[in-house]
Design a protein around this nucleic acid. Structure first.
Lengths: 193, 193, 193, 193
DNA sequence: TATGAATGAGGCTTCATTCAT
DNA sequence: TATGAATGAAGCCTCATTCAT
């Protein structure tokens, strides 16, 4: 009744850190073993191939659910967006290493790539739901798509704290702009022409 | 009148392709030499360290200038945005491998990271200029930032032709949404509160 | 009851031979592996850097102790010196390859250089002790220093059996000369003037 | 009528320095060219093989002649020895890099080894001559041999200024000891028994 | 006489992976 | 379940040497 697989978990945690720090290719399994403080052979005992570590990490990805009740301010689209972005920022930061990792390895590992796309689509859906519940009218789909892009971009590129850039500032102006487009009597998104 | 450095250029071109295909770490210099059809030693004759190839590629990045006169439709923000995105798509696709490469290696190579941020800022500025010249009013800055994010995101992530995703479709709805927010008598972006 | 680390030892022995034959820089690790009859990777498994081989060899240096009781002939300095030199010759020949190696690599490897100086000082001390116990009087220090130089020189330079030179002959005349200076009522070495 | 071969000489001088600093094997010809400030191809134009540089350096070795008239103090063996060692120290220091080099490469390059032995024999002869002219009696050969060893040893091993060791002090006690053995009515060196 | 691009062998080292225990 | 020695392929890089100009 002890923790079920402490060693296997320690190995995964070490791999997650190192992959995020240096990338998959630049991380030797020996270093993973060292950081996990397990003998080298044990890594390959649990994960026969190095790529298996990556897939296990992807499967372990938390399915981040947003508590929409705590985010939506009915009737106030802008306030809802602000609270949503705050929650998303916190969520994405909490699994920052994993997200980071996904971006880097998406090209060469199909499993990772698929997970990444899936996450983006889930994010768009989440934003759309918040907009709808907060009473947004107009082209909710486009706004959701734009916001999802901006949020994802921030978290994928501007993860280097040292860098100052136009995009590193807070997003309230953009949110206000989006909200403005969704509050007036704007037309809904037209179907694909 | 022939190209001044055919071999050096061939090596760079081969490196660009392979780095984009497989990533920096996963590309052996021997394969670069093979694709460039030069002996292995010549790669290191021109680029002492493998990382020098990366830096040379970044320096070679075309400073993409947009011919604004051919893009801006005065008085029609939406049309201007459509033409702008078309031009941007063409531009980014022409240097797709390089862009792709930047995204992957930004973390581990500072020179690459800086180039990436610089490119994003230039993109935002370009969009802003097009909006201004096409007669947009309102929070031009926020709109430029959102559009730059969306365009960048498309080109960095959705480069896998095989993948179908919500974001892989054309952007006209989003552009229409943005244009709508910039056409009415919307207020300009407020300064930092 | 077999040797505890046969492979590691075999690698060290092979390295010792080859370094002495050709020098450190001119000996590829692949040849060390070949002579030790182990796969190439095993050399680097035990000794991550090539220089580690050198340091391990230095640490393995036998601390040659002389059995003074078997050397000293009380009251007969010349006889004592003759027997001492015979013992030293045997000792140095037994670790000839290592000594040889030290001389060559002392410049570039501090650890080796220090070991070399330490050995010389130990040799001087040993000679001094033998002289004292055999009843030498006079400037024992100077004689010890001269003899240590001559012995060391012989073993470091005149190790090429093929070479005939004035110094390759036996040392009995020199020993007789030294003994003569230490037998009469000669004054002890003066302190630094 | 300009200096006959300034470039060739510059190359040799650069090679001498670098060989002494790092050793023959560890010195690339490209670095020699760099230090000599000549293009890389020129080194191999003058010296087809790298080893030719070494042989040219050995041939360039100055045949150090000692001005015995300025050294010998007739009737005072100890004073003569002191002045001799002072002159030898100066001489050997002036060609220190070359001497240093000889010691390191003697094993693998026969031409160097022969030059080294030749130098030692010349040194012994020189000392013997000084002793004879200063009126030494007794076993002049052994004393010359011992002193030559000690001087050579000092210059070959104790070239590392940073190292403090018993042998790094001045040699006057040893010289006094030797002189004492050559001043009394000591018997001449006997022939090989 | 001078040059520097070109060449390829080979050096050191890393590392995923296997396997006997 | 756990271990670490063993293996060898392959990577990056160095460098003497050649050669066309």
């Amino acid at each position: 009744m002890t923790a079920p697989e402490p060693t296997r978990e320690r190995i995964l945690a070490a791999a997650e850190e190192l992959f995020a720090e240096k990338g998959f290719d630049a991380t030797p399994t020996s270093r993973i073993a060292a950081r996990a403080e397990v003998p080298k052979g044990l890594v390959h005992y649990y994960f026969a191939r190095k790529a298996d570590l990556l897939e296990a990490l992807v499967e372990r990805l938390p399915r981040e659910r947003i508590d929409r009740a705590a985010v939506v301010v009915p009737g106030d689209v802008e306030a809802s967006l602000c609270r949503l972005v705050a929650v998303l920022d916190a969520l994405l930061d909490s699994s920052a290493v994993l997200s980071h990792l996904l971006w880097r390895e998406a090209d060469t590992h199909p499993a990772v790539r698929d997970a990444l796309h899936q996450r983006f689509d889930a994010l768009v859906a989440e934003i759309r739901a918040v907009l709808a519940e907060s009473g947004a009218t107009g082209d909710v789909d486009s706004a959701a798509m734009l916001l999802a892009s901006a949020v994802s971009y921030r978290h994928s590129v501007f993860r280097h704290a040292a860098v100052e850039s136009a995009a590193r500032t807070d997003m309230t102006p953009e949110l206000r702009f989006l909200a403005a487009g969704l509050t007036s009597s704007a037309p809904a998104r037209p179907g694909p022409a």
